[in-house]
């Protein structure tokens, strides 16, 4: 009996301590501020999404997918912009992911980290990830000028700008997933006589694929929402055909939305809202996919 009371005393003391730890005015105040911050962000976001949704509701129909831009909002749709976005993002993915993954493998697994060149590359990759997108548009514009490409409204040119934009992000994400693979795995592989290249290709890289996929998808979703660099590259065009190749003309959804919102007619604003909802859904789907991959294939070592 006596023993029991003692245990109870111990329990109550611990509980009391725990409560007093969080109930000081200071920590409560801090928690309240945190909650307000999150509340503010959520309310803002919700209002934005809901108003966009309401504005665009009338135009969220099949015409959005089937019609081409037109001078009358009733007849207009975003078909070329949707296809253009897919073309540009698909090309961007094909150009960026192999290059970014290869660069990351070299930096993480083979390069001598203490060499001055590696350090310069390393610092610059970090910095490039923070550069505003429009700069990459200007860079591509300049490069095309030097190369004498006069028609800049081509899928591959837009994809080039977006590739440069997200290449650092892909490199950083890949390096981080490679670094998360324990060095014991590499050692185990080398200890059975695998070459360093075999070790990367057969062991380290497969283990890092979920992280690479997640990072790449998030980077591509950033590129999908980007308008500024493509505007610089003449992406704002009136298309009455489906983009159908790397050298085809194109426009993308963010540009189409930008275009419609700058028109005076209310009908175009509705269309812009509808296209925004569609873009939002696509972005959410990509992010959900990224999260799904991350959770599904998360490695426990």
């Amino acid at each position: 009996m006596a023993r029991r009371t003692m245990q109870e005393t111990v329990h109550t003391t611990i509980r009391h301590k725990a409560r007093s730890g969080e109930s000081s005015p200071k920590s409560i105040g801090f928690l309240v501020i945190l909650w307000l911050a999150i509340l503010f962000a959520l309310v803002f976001l919700t209002v934005l999404i809901v108003t966009t949704f309401i504005d665009g509701w009338n135009r969220l129909d099949s015409r959005l997918f089937t019609e081409y831009p037109a001078s009358d909002p009733e007849d207009a749709g975003a078909r070329p912009a949707i296809l253009g976005s897919l073309w540009v993002i698909g090309t961007t993915a094909l150009m960026t992911i192999p290059l970014g993954v290869a660069a990351a493998i070299h930096m993480e697994e083979f390069a001598n980290r203490h060499h001055w060149f590696s350090r310069i590359v390393e610092v610059n990759v970090q910095n490039l990830a923070a550069i505003p997108a429009v700069i990459y548009g200007m860079l591509t514009l300049g490069a095309m000028g030097l190369m004498g490409v006069s028609n800049k409204n081509q899928v591959w040119v837009g994809a080039l700008a977006l590739s440069m934009l997200i290449l650092p992000v892909v490199i950083i994400a890949t390096r981080e997933s490679l670094r998360a693979v324990p060095s014991e795995i590499r050692q185990g592989s080398l200890a059975v006589g695998a070459t360093p290249l075999q070790t990367v290709v057969r062991n380290t890289l497969p283990a890092a694929v979920p992280g690479i996929a997640t990072g790449s998808i998030l980077a591509l979703s950033r590129a999908l929402g980007e308008a500024a660099p493509l505007l610089l590259l003449g992406g704002l065009v009136f298309l009455s055909f489906d983009p159908n190749g790397l050298t085809s003309g194109y426009t993308t959804m963010p540009i189409q939305i930008f275009n419609w919102t700058s028109r005076p007619q209310a009908g175009f604003h509705e269309l812009a809202a509808a296209a925004s909802v569609l873009l939002l859904v696509m972005l959410l789907a990509m992010n959900a996919l990224a999260i799904l991959i991350r959770n599904r294939y998360q490695k426990r070592w």
Partner: peptide
């Protein structure tokens, strides 16, 4: 060959863990 202090199986199937060495060699 070498066996390490901490078991370090590859994140693969049991079969592939064993077959790994013969395959890479």
């Amino acid at each position: 060959g070498m066996v390490f202090q901490k078991p370090n199986p590859f994140p693969k199937s049991i079969y592939d863990n064993i077959a790994y060495g013969p395959r890479v060699n």
